[in-house]
């Protein structure tokens, strides 16, 4: 079976700086794949390139075997790639619920429904509201549905951003440091949430610094250092890989 997503020698250069060089790996369907590496190793650049926020300088990205590199973000979202951001990008002056319904795939009202305020409009908006509430409940933020996103805590906003990503009914979910700024108990429920995603038909690429979370939830881990893929494999193998330890702790002189 073709993997859901395959990266073939993906590179991204900014002027003379290689943020990514020849990164290749694939995401099997229904897997939770971790992407780790020290700061500046290219993790977010890779997320941007996969989600269409940025385009690779070289290489190919195949979704279901079809090349998708360089497509704009909105088309990739339509084709099933959703993401969250390291720096949360909720709309502060919309409510939590409105932020989620923004990404819903369920049909929105047509121009005539809106301009003539046909009865259909109310029904459609109610359906969308119900969908959004369900998603907010799933991430544990249902009680904040009608609060403006700008006024919520960091952990809540992170969860609402995940709900928004899920609203587009993705097949591939890219999570960029979802646990950052979360309390211990929030991390535990985040872990349960991520672990449950493959059952719903999702494949997850997780960038995260919280090693307990990464080791606990990922089927496989890829390690980036200075834009190069330096290791990949099962969590236990990666954890004890000398190259990974070196990348994180620096080379030992003694």
């Amino acid at each position: 079976m073709t993997p859901l997503l395959e990266l073939r020698s993906v590179s991204r250069h900014f002027g003379g700086v290689a943020a990514l060089s020849n990164v290749s790996f694939s995401l099997p369907r229904g897997a939770v794949i971790g992407l780790i590496g020290p700061n500046g190793s290219g993790k977010t650049t890779l997320m941007n390139v996969i989600s269409g926020v940025d385009a690779p300088t070289d290489g190919a990205i195949l979704l279901d075997g079809a090349p998708v590199q360089g497509l704009p973000a909105n088309l990739l979202a339509r084709r099933g790639i959703a993401r969250t951001f390291q720096h949360i990008r909720l709309i502060p002056d919309l409510t939590a619920l409105q932020n989620v319904t923004l990404a819903l795939r369920t049909p929105s009202a047509g121009a005539l429904d809106i301009l003539l305020r046909l009865p259909r409009l109310g029904r459609i908006e109610r359906d969308r509201r119900a969908c959004g509430l369900k998603l907010l409940d799933q991430v544990g933020a249902g009680q904040h549905a009608d609060t403006l996103a700008g006024g919520l805590s960091y952990g809540d906003r992170r969860r609402i951003e995940i709900a928004r990503a899920l609203a587009s009914e993705p097949r591939l979910l890219l999570l960029d440091e979802p646990a950052a700024g979360m309390t211990h108990s929030e991390r535990t429920s985040l872990r349960d949430l991520i672990a449950g995603l493959p059952e719903r038909g999702l494949t997850v690429l997780l960038v995260e610094h919280d090693m307990d979370l990464v080791m606990g939830v990922c089927d496989e881990i890829h390690v980036l250092n200075q834009g190069n893929s330096i290791a990949s494999g099962k969590p236990e193998a990666v954890r004890s890989d000398p190259k990974v330890i070196e990348a994180y702790l620096g080379a030992e002189d003694a």
Binding site: N74, A77, R89, I91, D93, L102, A103, A109, I114, E125
Partner: peptide, 24 residues
Amino acid sequence: SAVGERMRAIAADELAVSTAGHDV
């Protein structure tokens, strides 16, 4: 309407709206 919400979202953060699947 939902379109008005999308307008406000575009004013605040175009990138977030396009990654949500909308052609800004």
